[in-house]
Computed example of a mutant assay.
Amino acid sequence: MEIYFLGTNAGVPTIQRNVTSVALRLMEERRSFWMFDCGEGTQHQVLRSPLRLGKLEKLFITHLHGDHLFGLPGLLSSRGYQGGTAPLTVYGPPGLKAFLDVSLSVSQSRVPYKLEIVEHTGGLIFEDDTFKVEAGLLEHRIDSYGYRVTEKDSPGSLNTELLLSYGLKPGPLYGRLKKGEDITTEDGTVVRAAEVICEPKKGRIVTVLGDTRPCPGSLPLARGADLIIHEATFAHDLADMAYQYHHSTAAQAAELARQAGGRELLLTHFSSRYVTQEELAPLLAEAQAIFPQTLLAEEFCTFPVYRRK
């Protein structure tokens, strides 16, 4: 499980950074990746990345502002031309389906795969045997949602060294033990499943928050998350401006991560007034003063999501 940024700028693209889009790579877990937001030019960013649109399984839109949405029709159309035949589900606030219906129909775009559009107003929006995704309303100029992705705990692996000491080689008996069944060897030894199965693997939690100023809705989504992705449009000396425009400062993002008991914080969605790394450095410093495990998002960079022991 890895985070890969395709766009980290707020509002409009610049020469240095594109507008918002982030990928959650799940190649080991699902042989696919998920995407959160799709600002203008995102498909160009994908071409410069190791991602392949044919592997895109789910796409989540936080809100319907253009810097998070305008790249979606083009990306959906291009996916078909790039070998994407597997079904794709797009989630987002009410109005998303109307936007896509008009964009794709008026442009006569061909989508040669099953495209499902799921509009939601928060709550549990997806669940299967391995993952669930919850959404919650934040506080922005229009309805904006954050997403909490929870990987479910997975069964522990078999202790093969111990099993070999019993004289048991890989085969059907391993499968029975994996299911929790006790077995008896040929010499009458009882091998108990509980003694040869390692501890379950703890699932990871990733929280991706859309545009928002500090609000009560952020905390439940971020509580106990292994990785929190939060906008940091301004440094804290512009806190009044951030509030006026329904955005957050780096310090406010860090305070949310501290209150939520998160493990790591990634800041993104930077105002165009912060162009260079030197100009972004104060945002990182003010956040790390509150929540030391903070990093700045960088486009075309991978950030692993580590598993709790």
Rank of each mutant, 00 (worst) to 15 (best):
D143P: 02
F33Y: 13
L267Q: 10
V275A: 13
K58C: 11
S154K: 09
Q43C: 11
K179E: 15
A254K: 04
L24P: 13
T302R: 12
H246Y: 10
E195M: 08
Q43V: 11
L88H: 11
E231H: 09
V90R: 04
Y245R: 05
H269T: 13
F36E: 05
G92H: 00
R204P: 11
F5K: 02
R308G: 14
R25N: 14
L163N: 08
F291E: 12
E199W: 01
E57H: 15
G39C: 06
R204W: 07
T42F: 13
Q293K: 11
H246E: 00
E116N: 10
Q45N: 07
A257Q: 05
L265N: 07
A257R: 02
L173I: 03
I229M: 08
Q288A: 12
T268F: 14
P214D: 01
L104E: 04
T14A: 14
T8N: 06
Q82A: 07
G66S: 13
T233I: 12
A285F: 01
Q252K: 06
P292F: 13
V206Y: 02
I205F: 00
L47F: 05
S105Y: 06
E298G: 14
D101A: 11
V149P: 00
L138W: 00
E278S: 15
L115W: 08
L256R: 01
T276Q: 11
E139F: 03
H68C: 12
A86N: 15
R52K: 14
E279W: 12
N18T: 06
G188W: 04
L59Y: 11
I229W: 04
A250Q: 14
H247D: 06
E119Q: 00
H246I: 00
I229F: 04
T233W: 08
K178D: 09
A235S: 07
E286P: 04
A250M: 15
N9L: 10
I142D: 01
T130R: 08
P292W: 08
H44Q: 13
G95Y: 03
Y4A: 12
D101R: 15
A232V: 12
G262I: 07
A239H: 06
